[in-house]
Amino acid sequence: MHMADALISPIVGGAMLAVSTTVAAHSIKKVQNSLDEKKIPLMGVVGAFVFAAQMINFAIPGTGSSGHIGGGMLLAILLGPHAGFLAMASILLIQALFFGDGGLLAYGCNVLNLGFYTCYIAYPLIFKPLTKKGITINNIFYASIISSLAGLQLGAFSVVLQTLISGKTELSFSTFTLFMQSIHLAIGLVEGLITCAVVTFIWKARPEIIERTNAEEALGSISTRKILIAMVICVIAVGGILSWFASSYPDGLEWAIEKTTGISELEAPEGIHTTLSNIQNNTAFLPDYDFKESSNESLLASDNAGTSVSGIIGGVFTLALIVLIGFVANIFKKRKTKVLA
């Protein structure tokens, strides 16, 4: 459920990046304050473990298919919420760069969706209370499954919101939510079961590893409140910016809501073009009128077929031009290397 660059708008990407940077700054401070430099290599190497573990195919009984672990909960349980969050952030950055899983702009979204909800919501609010009275096999079972489910449900809902606010793809809120939440119910269950299996194994073999982290005064009541307050402020700020955009121009957010409520369907057929040009206008990066004026001639917004024909021809020519420059540059480059050699 990695969010891709192609599906977000710069505002959403930027806002999420800002929020996740704030959370990361907080967790770095916590990790440094705990003065446990032993944790640094542990974070790095266990992070690499989760990365590798994501490639293990676990056969899901009775389905003939296999699933893999996301690892957010496992990191939180093994390293504690702060170090776990940072380890997840590292994993996601490497995935974005090397594997095209999620992108650099969507990085903030992914850190939030996969790291924040597991480490800062599901772990302290579900896993810890459930294992508070002492760790037992039963405790681990319920705590892992419920917290994994919750973490993934929150993450999935967050994906839905980020996608819809960005408005780069046509999906109705209700269908998309229903689809994402139910799929992640299944994924969360598998994730919970695998997490439970691994944690149980570790707890049997080396109980001190789990106990140490669990006993840590990981999230005092004050810092949880602080984080929640910070989150609320961020959400209000982001919401404020977005609604400002939305009120000035009925873009992404409003448009998504419009779609899901079906209001846009009421528009008369001749309104299609105006809607299209509206969309065209509103998706421009900067709220600048001149900017948009020029977009009137774009492929879809135009009324006359002539422009779209010239658009296609122009597209082909631009491509051809690019390829041509590429070839010339290549020949040039090769000659230069030959001369040097």
């Binding site: 290599p41 195919n57 056969a59």
Partner: peptide, 29 residues
């Protein structure tokens, strides 16, 4: 004949690797 790791081995398969990983982390440290 198996497609992935059987559910009975989930914990010990990933767990063993994890234990070794943690030991490695100690040596790296």
């Amino acid at each position: 004949q198996q497609k992935g790791i059987h559910k009975n081995a989930w914990g010990s398969f990933a767990g063993h690797l994890l234990l070794r990983t943690i030991e490695r982390a100690q040596r790296v440290y």
